[in-house]
Amino acid sequence: MSSASQVAERDAPFQLRGNSFTMMVLKVFAPTSPDFFTQLNVKVRQAPNFFRNAPVVLDFDDLPESIVFDLGAFVSQVQALNLLPVGFQGGPQPVREAAMTVGLTPMPSGRAAKLEEVVKAPDPRQHDQQTPIPAPQVLIEVVHRPTVVVTEPVRSGMRVYAEKTDLIVTSSVSPGAELLADGNIHVYGALRGRALAGFSGDGNARIFCHSLEAEVLSVAGNYRVSEDIGSDFYKKAVQVFLRDGVLSMDLLKTA
């Protein structure tokens, strides 16, 4: 789709800007363990869509100084599970050097410092506007992905996907519209379309809505069509979730 930004950028051959990405950190304790890849494989298979081609950072911080292993082969085996190692952090010097030679990017570590900041931040009294916010030195450790917020009506035929995060719609969702989220879905208008939470398999995801008139509700692939939604819940404030693997609905108690 051609867009305004394309028009505006037509003169410059590129644009450089900062961005932060959510990545998983694979903490490596015992890379030589015979069970390492069997167990990793089991983990990956639990949510294949979530892990497919996911960038990961290998964390060697807990490796013993004396460890010797073939990092190249290790990385290939991780790749064989459809994970994409893009960087590393920590580790003994020989391991770090080996990681650089196989093309992994060294990521700044400094976790302890970060944790302290997180602890300090919530106290509003100490918050000083003048204090410059420390540069995000540990981008890779960001596990929080901003929630997708939609304020306009979601019209028939529109599809909104909140990838690896939650979705909040403050307006109504029309029949024939589709909401997808890997996390939770909240709808503060009428939910008349389809809502699929836990789209990549997260069975803990939930759907919350102010007025349930949905066509389809689904959590982690367990779905219910509007025919099967009891009249007790129709046009009510409801939460939808998995109870022992079965799609369940509860009325939301409003004061």
Binding site: P153, R155, S156, G157, M158, S174
Partner: peptide
């Protein structure tokens, strides 16, 4: 419903 769709378009 079709009007809703065209509004989205």
């Amino acid at each position: 419903r079709d009007s809703d769709r065209i509004l989205g378009v």
